[in-house]
Structure formats: structure tokens, C-alpha cells
């Protein structure tokens, strides 16, 4: 029976790797970051700082690979924000989902993300993570500020922004993890991010505006 349920290949190997890599990074950075912030003592301040710095720099470097992938594959178009159907999606999560209604914007190879996801992931990848990377890099290079002519910045201001964005990402994490349970089955989204294949409720139907048109030069 199960084998007959419709499946689509949504996430390539690199995309899945990147997703789980980011998850590991977020967990490491969140735990060590909160310790550096003085919330608790787990690894000791020194070790927490070392690991936090190492993970942060690692992510910063690998992020450039992600940006490269995003643009060479044309996948960046999956993140173009739209308000079309956004309120319908919001209505779905606020009401329809309780009524057992089908998702108004089902996933497809060419439109992986619903309008809410587009907005959320764009904010995350284009705003929150760069903010964390910039403020984190500044925080890390604090001793070079005077040499770079940046010593007019108060360290507290950088810390404030870094903390605020960190909490925003924590909130994203909570909601994001929960939202994985809202697929065709509770584990459908999770399984898709592991195997690449997502069980869907019904055959794919994508509207034109959602489709990603690939230019021949993108190599796909």
C-alpha cells in the first residue's frame, strides 16, 4: 500500500547535507552561545568560547559554498518572496489544518516552499544568518577594531544585536521543528529532508507563477 503513495524527489544530496549541517551548527552555536552569555555553566567559559568561535567561522566559510550553490543552480528563485496565497496559507495553519483540509500550496520540485516558508527562509538566510555572521565576526575580531578604525562601536551594541538575532533564530527553531510534523504524515517532512523523497497527499499541481524557470546557462 505505502509504496503506492505518491512521492516526489524534493531535496538533492547537497541541500540535505546543508540542512543538517546547519542544524548541527545552530545547536552547537546556540548551546555554547547561551553559555558565553552567562545563562548556564556546561563546558566552561573558555571551551564554550573556543567551540563557538570555531563553529561560527566554519559556518561563515561554508556559507559561501551555499551561496555559490544557490546561484549556480538557480535555487535562489525558490526564495523569492510573494504575498500571493500567503494569507491562504496563514488561514490554513490557523484554521484549515484543524479541519483536515489539504494544504493550499502543496510542495513540488519546482516550488518547494509555500509563501510563508519563502518569507521565513529568505529572512533567515539573507538577514538573520548574515547578521549573525557579521556581528559574530566583529565580536570575534574585537581586538582588531582599533586597527580597523572601528573602535567607535561599543562592544555592547554588537552583543545586543548578536543576542537579539540569536533569540530570533531560537524562536524560528522551535516553530520550524514543530512545523515538520504538519506534512501528509507526522514524519513526512522529516523523512523528505533525510531521504530527499517527500510523501505528498495528491499529485503535484503547480501554478505557473510558482514555477522556477531555469535558464539554459545554469547548467541544469
Amino acid at each position: 500500500m505505502k509504496d503506492q503513495s505518491p512521492r516526489i524527489y524534493l531535496y538533492t544530496r547537497y541541500e540535505r547535507f546543508w540542512h543538517w549541517f546547519q542544524m548541527v551548527m545552530i545547536v552547537i552555536l546556540m548551546v555554547t552561545g547561551l553559555e558565553v552569555h552567562g545563562e548556564f555553566v556546561l563546558l566552561g567559559f573558555e571551551r564554550a568560547v573556543e567551540i563557538h568561535n570555531f563553529a561560527g567561522i566554519t559556518w561563515l566559510i561554508t556559507f559561501f559554498f551555499f551561496v555559490f550553490w544557490l546561484f549556480t543552480t538557480g535555487e535562489w528563485k525558490q526564495y523569492i518572496p510573494t504575498t500571493r496565497k500567503m494569507f491562504i496559507v496563514m488561514r490554513y495553519y490557523g484554521y484549515g489544518i484543524f479541519q483536515g483540509e489539504p494544504h493550499p500550496v502543496p510542495k513540488s520540485k519546482k516550488a518547494k516552499h509555500n509563501p510563508l516558508q519563502r518569507l521565513t527562509y529568505l529572512t533567515l538566510a539573507a538577514v538573520m544568518l548574515p547578521v549573525q555572521m557579521i556581528t559574530g565576526f566583529l565580536y570575534w575580531s574585537y581586538n582588531s577594531w582599533s586597527a580597523w578604525g572601528l573602535d567607535f562601536i561599543p562592544l555592547g551594541a554588537v552583543a545586543l544585536v548578536h543576542m537579539a538575532a540569536a533569540f530570533a533564530i531560537l524562536i524560528f527553531l522551535i516553530v520550524h521543528v514543530y512545523m515538520t510534523t504538519t506534512g501528509a504524515t507526522v514524519s513526512a517532512h522529516l523523512k523528505a529532508m533525510i531521504t530527499g523523497w517527500e510523501d505528498v497527499e495528491e499529485p503535484e499541481s503547480v501554478e505557473d507563477w510558482e514555477k522556477v524557470y531555469r535558464s539554459p546557462s545554469s547548467g541544469q
Binding site: V36, H37, G38, F45, V49, Y139, P154, L155, G156, A159, L160, M163, A164, F167, L170, I171, I174
Partner: peptide, 20 residues
């Protein structure tokens, strides 16, 4: 001066933990 681990912004922390 701001010192990591010692200092925080209580209002931000309060609001942020509240939101989480």
C-alpha cells in the same frame, strides 16, 4: 564596559526568553 558572560541586557533577555 561590556564583558561577555558577565553583562547582559536584562530587558532583551526577558523579552526574548518570553517570546521563546
Amino acid at each position: 564596559f561590556y564583558m561577555p558572560g558577565r553583562d547582559n541586557f536584562p530587558l532583551l533577555d526577558f523579552a526574548a526568553w518570553g517570546a521563546a
